[in-house]
Design a protein around this nucleic acid. Sequence first.
DNA 1: GCAAGGTC
Length: 862
Amino acid sequence: MKLVIAEKNIAAQKIAQLLATGKPKNDKVYNTPVYRFDVEGEEWVSMGLAGHILAPDFPDEILFDKKEGWYSLTEDGEVLNAQVPDGLARPPYDTKRKPFLANGINIKGWKVESLPYLTWAPIIKNPAEKEIIRVLKNLAKKADSVVIATDFDREGELIGSDALSCVREVAPDVPVSRARYSALIKGEVTEAFNNLVELDQNLADAGESRQYIDLIWGAVLTRYLTLAKFGGFGNVRSAGRVQTPTLALVVERERERMAFVPEDYWQIRGMAAAKGADFKINHATARFTDKDAAQTAFGHVDGVVAGTVTDVAKRSRKQQPPVPFNTTSLQAAAAAEGISPARTMRIAESLYMSGLISYPRVDNTVYPRSLDLEGIVKGLAANSPALAPVCKKVLAGPMKPTRGKTETTDHPPIHPTGQGDPTTLDSGQLKLYNLIARRFLATLMGPATIENTKVSIDVAGEPFTASGDVLVDAGFREAYPYGLKRDEQLPALDAGDVVDVHDVNLEAKQTEPPARYSQGKLVQEMEKRGLGTKSTRASIIERLYQVRYLKNDPIEPSQLGMAIVDALSQFAPRITTPEMTAELDEDMTHVAEGQDTQTHVVDHSRALLAGMLDNLIEHKDDLGEAISDAVTADARVGACPKCGKDLVMKQSAKTRGSFIGCMGWPDCDVTYPVPSGVKVSPLEGDAAVCPECGAPRIKCQPFRQKAYEQCVNPKCPTNYEPDLKVGECSVCAEAGRHGDLIAHKSEKSGKRFIRCSNYEECGVSYPLPARGKLEATGEVCEHCGAPVVVVETARGPWRICVNMDCPGKEKKEKPARGAKGAAAKGSTAKKTPAKKASSSKKTTAKKPAAKKTTSKKSSSAQ
DNA sequence: GCAAGGTC
């Protein structure tokens, strides 16, 4: 039996299909899919790994041994030594230091003083994919020969080399060869298997050097930053070859913004009307940099009510259809639609696994000739009714696909497969699927034609212009409406026409600093600078958010993020720039070409890091202080009204809950609750202090809603709301009592809720939205009998039934998510009346809970 | 409980 080892399941499956005489048989070994097939009478089996199956790490215990050398590793009685190669700077060691734990069970085992040892510590490779390794060994034992058919790149060679080392453990003598193919197509793969070669150990060593250097620098600097000022568990301050330069990009942009000096300019803008249509007009001088000139011009037109059209110019321009998606361009396009790169990859992975889209990790932007474009469009038309009309148009057209700049042959650009049922997708999946499907169709369509009309208007001797864009031929835009500017339609005008002019204003403006990065732009910038790969960029950005170096979108660095970059730029500048990656790539090339060795390259890198450690350790306290100050600054919400110290967001050690507390504690005991469901940030200047009570005023940002400002003190008169009767309690009425439903606002937490005046008896309460003026309507809900109130929101009045479990609400939800959402909601909302009711042991009180449960079940079942 | 790289 011949064993073929591929990098991933899909490749194993494809290889089987391409090489098999007849059809391959899908089989499983311990739940891992394998493919059994026949090649000219010989029995073959292919299996996919899951990327790297071994992970580099430091051994659990590294003991320093001054007799044996710089360090020795004891493991199963075996003593290994590694010497610093000649010609490399040795860090100054204190040879009297005690043994240390490199991989302590907890952070207590980490010591800044032990970092020089860690820098020179040996690295072992642990099994990371135990199931896969088990299957691999199982099959290798039975194999007469093995072919490594991982991807044709550096990491692929390393993954293959790791697999080989696993194979060797059970089959020391089995012949092993390597198949190199750069596209999963028949010609390439058969060619590769007809011309098998040896595994390129130099190339694998190059990949492994990359692993080691990343681990050493990452672990040493992360431990250093984390220990410089230990902020408690869960507060790791990470650093790395890719993440730190990426953070530095964001910090650099923020610094440019802070250093930016805005310039004043003035604009004269107004409205005009003709033939029943209103349109915008601007002074032909788009920006006046001279205030006097602007005022003079404005003086001429202020109060003037008519203008004369002097010229109408039309120009049509073509907009070319977009090129096929690769990973980066998909991430950028999805980010513009509000899906972060990391979420895009998670969703894309799920769509790929369900067979709706092609492999999502690609650089290629050129469809291979072998791709059946027409078949895919036909499949889309059949499976997506919404896309069918556009598909029809595409099929009728010449269907000449666009091409991007990057052409590789390993995988096609990201495209829909045309298979699978998109109606089963959840809303996030559907949004991304539509983007991918529509992009695919757009790449097969013609350009869009946009007609621009520029109207020149004379207003009291001052030149004004109006501009209109109209899509006259949609072309690809019919399939791909993303990022489309709205049409600015102008009425049909001719020179000499007179238009009404109104609302002309002189506006004082300032130039804007360079924009912050969006997540999409940052991914593109990383690619441009050679930072990370298509598979890692999204998760690296997510990581920077997770360790709270970054916040918001567009991306801002936190004070902590800036402090980290400052500190590392000073003491370990190499880690903060993209050059480390560039130099690493160069070293890797040398190792791959046999001009250098893994040991030399890695040790050289260790020496560079070791050379920075003295300085880092010496400045540990300065850096700890800078980090500590930055963390406080990030948590600050305002000034304490009692002692003037900073009020910051804190975590209760007991309950793990958040609260706002004074940095002066224990001398000052001022605390406030944190408004729930919103992101809190401080206000600046006069707005930062409440004129009524002196407590800080804060900015509250609810998820995807308008931000508002309020005083943090729930007892402040500005937060006071009188109790309001909103209806009568139906549970009490049924029990022959009278109960009023009253809306309260808790003084302690600031939360609003409705509670029956007989709450002890009936246990009836409902939550209320945190914001918006409440009004009672006296009406009850037609679905559940709970009171209906009006909440005044930023978007206008909103009539709601106060019952979160009301069956009338769930009808709107889609069945796939509705069932889940209803169940989750039900469990929390049901609790309030039911739990309270059982504690007061009133049988009548159980009724509403039971009723709710049944109505919910019926509604989620539909 | 440290990185970056694969992929599930």
